[in-house]
Structure formats: structure tokens, C-alpha cells
Design a protein around this nucleic acid. Structure first.
Lengths: 332, 332
DNA sequence: CGAGCCAATTAAAACGTGTCAACAACCCCG
DNA sequence: CGGGGTTGTTGACACGTTTTAATTGGCTCG
């Protein structure tokens, strides 16, 4: 491994290392002739700037961290795409971390990111405890919450999950449903708790008792979790409508119900959440709550980089999008 | 931004910086009493090791790069999950890059990764040209190809796409189809070209002329591309069966055909590729070619880290998995 | 009691870049 | 021809860690 550094380049081009550095970072300050001489030397030697040295010197790197609950979930994959697009435009890189909904993994990830001296962190936090994030921020790392609203001292980009839960449930009620189920992941996950809250608000507004909706909690928010939830439902009296905390769950539920001979939406109406690409192509096209997923990632990243570029003049913003009801066959 | 370094910790614990470093990296070399004193100082000051400095000193970081064609594709999301799991076990981090099938973006990404002094790079290359990768490797960065086979001087983990194309097409032929279509992304993408090659092999083996299959090339390998492909098909004589180069295409095709009133599989049989989770939940459950996606990411990463840990004794391996036919409603 | 050894600790020298004050060369204009 | 301004270049230091060889002090054994 031959390590060609700025010095070798300088020597070859017959200039000082400082000039090479200038060519790299402020090309306008160096005369055209010298510049092209240096550039040629760079090409000939195959020189690549050592990012760690630059980071060490500068105190921060050209990377941002992205911590999501599950890359396998198309929702987060889409967020990641938004992040990656912006970051790559600005010549930065993304360090992707999966917390898998575990606070320990989240902590570990944050430590690694802090060690890497990332400029900022985009995170969908696992729990409600933002103290670790505060400490990060105090250490000079910008933090933007994604799909989770913050309380004034942090930036956040989120979608109103209570409104979404209300939207979904009101829709089911307007269709005549009076006995509902809410299939969800652990209620410790804020998204789940909020959507549930919205569902209950919808019930109250419709004059229905809160016990009209039954919570079906499963450990994982994916298709397998959906299967489990459906099995629980099938073991009792089937509700008239099921609201699922995300589309992955809903697809699992749908499939299991169909296999058991239940007709959707005639026997049971179904609605999911996130409106991932595949929901519209499902066996019974799935109603869902649409979120501006790609924009979530994009805007969060812009906020983050703006905060990085001007830490003083930056005012924390809490952006809240409104979700949108998409009605398809599964609840028509 | 207060930067608390190893020196402050040393001062507070009443030891030298070297000892603090030892506590961090070889705890067994330092006496229990001093160690705990240092550890306490670390906790009290909230010290986090500066990774860039460590990287600068060591010459390489504790990160690996992952360059994929599209994070939005569940196939790659699943690969990423496999990578992330292994890497995080070994206390490393992943830098995720999207090449979006563009050689320019790929180059840019590789430059960033080289600057970051990643230990290794996992990449699904856009084109066939591996010279850039060779240069990377010569510079001391381990390289493992993912979903792309290498030719001896590089590690690779791939799935036999020719066999997969053959499998899919033979299946359609065995069902009685004699006029086929192959919906695909740009044939410059190796996966597409190989699957096409497999399809043609199947035709030959069945004694059918090569012109029995019509290529329908679209620019993007996602649901939108699938819609385009289906529209092209609908504009002419419908084939008896369509083989799609991936499931996203197939889902787009399926949806568009159904909307146009075409019955699947009665009018047109359909098979996809990748067997992503959603294929089984589609309007008409999709036949597909299954690949060991998660294992692809996992094994590639293990190979990569092994190469990093023992660059001398490492023999390059080309691992090739065999794909598997999954028959569902869409081609039954 | 001293030589020799071991364990624990330290001081100092890298790693490769960015920055900044200082300097050189040149030009313009009085 | 000289003073002052401008443009381009330089040299040296700092960033925070790891590592190596050197040092200290305590202990054993002859």
C-alpha cells in the first residue's frame, strides 16, 4: 500500500504542500499555470486526499449519520434515498445505521457516529428519551429528528401521526364499521402510540366507545408480524375493520385473512399506513395513509446541512407534514 | 463545541496520554486501579475517541463502503441489512452509497470512500469495467463484488443469473408458452444481460427459435418501468408469457395488464426475479426466482473483513449461489 | 546487598492535511 | 525611481491519537 500524500504531489509539481492544499480547497487563489501543473501531478500520482487528516484538522468530517429503525422497511429505504440524494449533491457521504428498534444498538450507533465526527445525525429515535441526542448536540453535532417531532431545541421533520390515525379510523367508521381492531408493533414506539391515539380520537368524535377498538400488539412491524396479528384476530370474533400501523403489517394481515377464506373488504375492511409502493399492487389493493416519505428525508437533510453551515444563525424548526388518505379496494 | 481529548482525560486521571490510549485499546496492559481511575475520568468528561485521529494514525478506518444500484429496491435493502448486521457485530460502520446505475455517480462515490480510507468496499458495479476497482485494491482497499462475479483477482459473491433466466424461461415454456417477452432494464446492466442469456439458452434447449422471445427494454428497473413495458406490450400482439428482469418491473407490468383487462395467468403468464417479500402478496401472487439476498450481503461482508484482517493469507474466492424457482399463481 | 527482571507507565515521534502570517514578485502611479 | 498595493506562494505549526523505546520502581534470587 503506497501512500501518496500531498507532499509527494508538491515535490513533483515543484511547489510547496501549502499550494497543493490551496489547489484542493480554494483553487481560485492559485495561478492557473501552477494549478494545472499541480492537477497534473495529482493525476499522475493517483493522489487521493486523506479524509481523516482533513477531518482531524477541521474538527468535523464531510459525512452525516442516518439512524433508522429498519432499512428493510421500504418507508425508511425511501427516506434514505432522499437523504442520499441531497448529501451526495453536496459532496458528502452517509453513514447508515440500523437500530432495529433496540435502544442498545441505537446507543452503539451513536457512539460510532460521534467517533467518526460526523457533521450531523439524522435519526428516527427508538424511544422518547432525547437526552443522549441533546448531549450529542452540545458536543457540536447537529441533530435532526426524522419522523418524530421535537420540542423546540431540536430540528425535526415529521408527519402528524395522530391525524393519520384519525384519518384512517374515521374512514373505516364512515364505512359503517363499529367493531375495529388496531394491529400494531410495540406501543413504546411513538409512531404506533400516536396512530393509536388518533384512532381513539376518531372514535370519540364519532360518538363510539373507546372499547370499540381492540389493540392487537405484535413484536415486529413486518409481514411476519402481520401474520401473527391476523392469527390472533382469527382466533376470536372477527372485527369489521382492521387498521394496521404500517403497510408491512397490513400486507401480512391481508394475506393471512385471504388464506383463511375471509373476504376483504366484504367481511373485514383493511387499511394500512405509509402507502409504500407495493400496497397498490397487493392482492386486494390496500387503502393506506400516504406520507411524503422521500421529501421527509430530503428536507431533513437540507435542514441538517443548513444547521451545520451556519450554527449561529440557525433557528430550530419543527416541520410537520399532514398525511393523506388513499382509498383503495381493501376498504371500499 | 468543547473538544475534550485524550489529554484532558489524562490530566484529570493523573496519568499520561499514552496510558489513556492503552486503557482504550489494550486494557489488559494497565493496572486495574489506574484503569478504573481513567475510566471514571472518561465518564466524567464525556470523552469520545476521535476516530479521524485514530484513522490517520492507523492508515485505515473502521468503516466499509457499500455501493448499490438503488437502495429503494428491496433486493438491495435486504443486502444492506445483511451487511449492516455483520459490520455492526464487528464494531465497524457502513457508508452507504447509491450509484443509481450511473457510472459517474459510482466514480464519485468511490472517490469519497477512498478519501474516507474505508477498510473495504462492497460494490455492485454498474458496468463491466473493473479497472477502477483494481486501482482501489492496489491502493490497499479490499474489494468484494456483490451480485456480480469476478475473474480471479477479486472476491465476489453472486447468484447465477444465467441459470436463473433459464429457470424462469424453461418454466414458462413448460407451461406451453411459445411466444414470450423479456421485460428488462438496460442490457448494459450485467444482471439483465445474463438473465436474457439464460432465457435464450432455455429456448434453444426447448428447440424454439430465438425470435420466440421479444426484448422490451425500459430505462428504469422499477414499477414505473414495468408500466412502460406493459404499455409497449399492449400496443402490439400480446405474448403468451412475460419474464421480467426483476420483481419491481413485474409488479408494474402485472398492475398495468390487469387494469387493461388482461387476465393473468390465463391470457398472459408472468414471472419476476428476486422474490422480494411483496411478490407473494401481489394482486396475483407472483412467480419469481429466489435469491439468497440477505446471505449475499452477509457473506460478502465476512469475506471482505477476512481479507482486511489477513491481507497476506487471503485467497480470493468467487462464490456463486444457485437461484431457485418459486411458482405462484401468476404462472400456474 | 546488588544484579537482573518484570510490570506499569511515560515521553516523544509520527500520521497527512489545513491555515495563517509572512514573504516575494510584480505592477501602477506619482 | 521609489512607495504602496496586489497577487501568488511558502513554511511552520496544530489537530488527537497510537506506538515504540525508554524509564521507573518494586521484587526476586543468587
Amino acid at each position: 500500500m503506497v501512500t501518496v500524500g500531498i507532499k509527494e504531489v508538491a515535490q513533483r509539481a515543484g511547489v510547496s504542500p501549502g499550494t497543493v492544499s490551496n489547489v484542493l480547497n480554494r483553487p481560485e487563489r492559485v495561478a492557473a499555470a501552477t494549478r494545472s501543473r499541480v492537477e497534473q501531478a495529482i493525476r499522475e500520482l493517483g493522489f487521493v486526499r486523506n479524509g481523516s487528516a482533513a477531518t482531524l484538522r477541521a474538527g468535523q468530517s464531510r459525512t452525516v449519520g442516518l439512524v433508522v429503525l429498519d432499512v428493510g422497511n421500504p418507508f425508511f429505504a425511501e427516506v434514505a434515498r432522499g437523504v442520499e440524494d441531497v448529501v451526495s449533491d453536496r459532496d458528502h457521504a452517509v453513514i447508515l445505521c440500523n437500530s432495529g428498534e433496540s435502544p442498545e444498538k441505537e446507543s452503539r450507533n451513536l457512539r460510532v457516529l460521534a467517533e467518526q465526527r460526523v457533521r450531523g445525525v439524522l435519526i428516527t429515535p427508538v424511544g422518547e428519551d432525547t437526552s443522549r441526542l441533546q448531549r450529542l448536540r452540545d458536543r457540536g453535532v447537529a441533530v435532526v429528528l426524522v419522523d418524530h417531532s421535537a420540542s423546540g431545541d431540536l430540528c425535526s421533520v415529521a408527519v402528524d401521526d395522530v391525524a393519520g390515525g384519525d384519518l384512517a379510523t374515521s374512514h373505516l367508521i364512515s364505512r359503517g364499521a363499529e367493531r375495529l381492531a388496531f394491529a400494531t408493533g410495540p406501543l413504546a414506539i411513538r409512531q404506533c402510540a400516536d396512530r393509536r391515539k388518533g384512532a381513539r380520537r376518531a372514535l370519540r368524535n364519532a360518538g363510539l366507545p373507546v372499547r370499540s377498538i381492540e389493540d392487537v400488539v405484535v413484536p415486529e412491524m413486518n409481514a411476519h408480524g402481520g401474520r401473527l396479528a391476523a392469527e390472533k384476530l382469527l382466533a376470536g370474533d372477527l372485527p369489521e375493520a382492521v387498521f394496521c400501523a404500517n403497510d408491512l403489517l397490513a400486507l401480512g394481515v391481508l394475506r393471512t385473512l385471504l388464506q383463511a377464506g375471509v373476504r376483504v373488504p366484504d367481511d373485514v375492511a383493511l387499511i394500512g399506513y405509509d402507502d409504500i409502493e407495493f400496497s397498490s399492487a397487493a392482492a386486494v389493493p390496500l387503502s393506506s395513509i400516504r406520507q411524503p416519505t422521500y421529501r421527509l428525508g430530503k428536507i431533513a437533510t437540507e435542514l441538517l446541512l443548513d444547521e451545520c453551515d451556519d450554527p449561529g444563525g440557525h433557528a430550530h424548526q419543527q416541520i410537520m407534514f399532514q398525511p393523506e388518505l388513499v382509498v383503495r379496494e381493501s376498504s371500499r
